[in-house]
Write a protein that binds this DNA or RNA. Structure first.
Length: 429
RNA sequence: GGAGGGGUGGCUGAGCGGUCGAAAGCGCUGGUCUUGAAAACCAGUGAAGGGCGACCUUCCCAGGGUUCGAAUCCCUGCCCCUCCGCCA
């Protein structure tokens, strides 16, 4: 949520900047709602004050033993007028709140203009793409014996996977490897969280109210959803709390499955496991002092990069243009890993600074020792990394041309010392 | 699932339907004292919204209701605790 005060003071400028993302900010509607709000608030507060004073007088009179009946009669229809005013105020507030919650974050000044991912800007590259003396195969072919997409389809439809044997183990090894890097080398606390959350929680991080179609809803009487990313439960740990300044920064790493309906992506990435309804991700979340969030974004990005470096996977770093930004992000940096079979870089991590946008929706604050007042924290998150996509990258970059894949050095100890994997038709080692 | 007990400020915890945004303690901030610190003592200290401001309004888990007036009474929901049952 954008700071309403800032919005009132700098309406046209902010509306224009939100517009650079391709979003529409209806200035006149906002102004109309604000006018109605002011009038309704004034009316309501005046009537409330009147009632309060009258009730106090009656209380005092009764205590003094006076006859209060005439005073009670004099209050008349105040209650009804107050209820009417309140109803209008509540309604305007609801509309204004809905309006505000539907406005995406303001892009940072440093975000390049652009409509979609074609206009993202490359910042740097690491390592050259590997050269093969054979035609590199894609992960579906390499892992054919151990990746059973037909079995998955029978269980749950398209965009799910069944992995067997050493492929499943490699997947698990990657997860453990990533968590260990972040806890042992980068100072994150590992945390385990629910994979099902209430509606409010998703409003807090910005997935709702606008993107309900992207989520899997749980049927039942409790209005819950499967999490689309660990960002949701982990960031919301601080909702409606006032943290001590000296507890910042909070740094969490969580491994969870992520569930996305991928509505609107029906024709995209249909081969293999690149885009799934269910996938594993190791997520980094930081909660920081507002003065620290830009430095923290660089740091968090470098933590995600460290995983790619440890696996010796070539990648590049791009900054998303305004039109490609996620709803809640003020700025996002993507890591794209090299996929030989596609002969291009593909997204494997997305690191964002949300400033106070999520904190405001969650009411997540810290007490500033300088002012002694609660202030909104800044939140950030990034994939460190998307496990399924890392699996693809390892298979494709480490393939040997004879149907086998050698295991990255860093992963050997997580694979029981195995240095070479073959995925035959039985899916065995 | 059954029976009981609870949800009050940053924390703990009082609170006969009226002067209660709410005692007290802890914590925090400032001061006195001290070479310095601790202790002691004194003072201050909830949050949100609105207004240029003096100031105003709201908030005692959430939502309804009763009442001139609700932290307090009633209803519903959510959550927590204790005991019993069941259970990976």
């Amino acid at each position: 949520m954008i700071d309403p005060r800032r919005l009132r003071q700098d309406l046209l400028n902010i509306a224009a900047r939100v517009g650079t993302r391709g979003a529409v900010f209806d200035v006149s509607r906002f102004e109309a709602l604000e006018d109605r709000r002011k009038a309704a608030q004034l009316e309501t507060e005046n009537l409330q004050q009147e009632r309060r004073r009258a009730s106090k007088r009656i209380g005092a009179a009764r205590a003094a033993g006076e006859d209060i009946a005439p005073m009670v009669a004099a209050v008349g229809d105040l209650g009804e007028r107050l209820n009417a005013a309140k109803a209008e105020f509540d309604e305007v507030r609801r509309e204004l709140d809905e309006f505000m919650r539907g406005i995406p974050n303001v892009p940072d000044e440093s975000v390049p203009p652009g409509a979609d991912d074609a206009e993202n800007v490359e910042l740097r590259r690491w390592r050259e793409p590997p050269r093969f003396n054979f035609e590199p195969r894609d992960h579906v072919d390499i892992a054919a014996g151990a990746l059973d997409l037909e079995a998955a389809a029978k269980l749950a439809g398209a965009r799910f996977s069944v992995m067997r044997g050493s492929l499943a183990r490699l997947h698990r090894a990657l997860t453990a490897f990533m968590i260990d890097i972040h806890t042992l080398e980068h100072g994150y606390e590992e945390i385990y969280v629910p994979y099902v959350v209430d509606r409010d929680i998703l409003v807090g991080t910005g997935q709702l109210p606008k993107f309900e179609d992207d989520l899997f809803a749980i049927s039942g009487d409790r209005d819950q959803f499967l999490i689309p990313t660990a960002e949701v439960p982990v960031t919301n740990l601080i909702r409606e709390r006032i943290l001590d300044a000296d507890t910042l920064p909070l740094k969490f790493v969580a491994h969870t499955p992520c569930f996305r309906s991928e509505a609107g992506n029906y024709g995209k990435d249909t081969r293999g496991i690149f885009r799934q309804h269910q996938f594993e991700k190791v997520e980094l979340v930081q909660v920081v002092h507002p003065a620290e969030s830009w430095r923290a974004l660089d740091e968090l990005t470098s933590h995600a990069e460290a995983v790619l470096k440890a696996l010796d996977l070539p990648y590049r770093v791009v900054v998303l243009c305004a039109g490609d930004l996620g709803f809640a992000a003020a700025k996002t940096v993507d890591l794209e890993v090299w996929l030989p079979a596609e002969n291009r870089y593909r997204e494997i991590s997305s690191c964002s600074n949300f400033l106070d946008f999520q904190a405001r929706r969650m009411l997540a604050r810290f007490r500033d020792p300088e002012t002694a007042r609660p202030e909104y924290v800044h939140t950030l998150n990034g994939s460190g990394l998307a496990v399924g996509r890392t699996l693809i990258a390892v298979l494709e970059n480490y393939q040997d041309g004879d149907g086998s894949v050698h295991v990255p050095d860093a992963l050997r100890s997580y694979m029981g010392g195995t240095s070479r994997l073959e995925f035959d038709a039985a899916g065995a080692e």
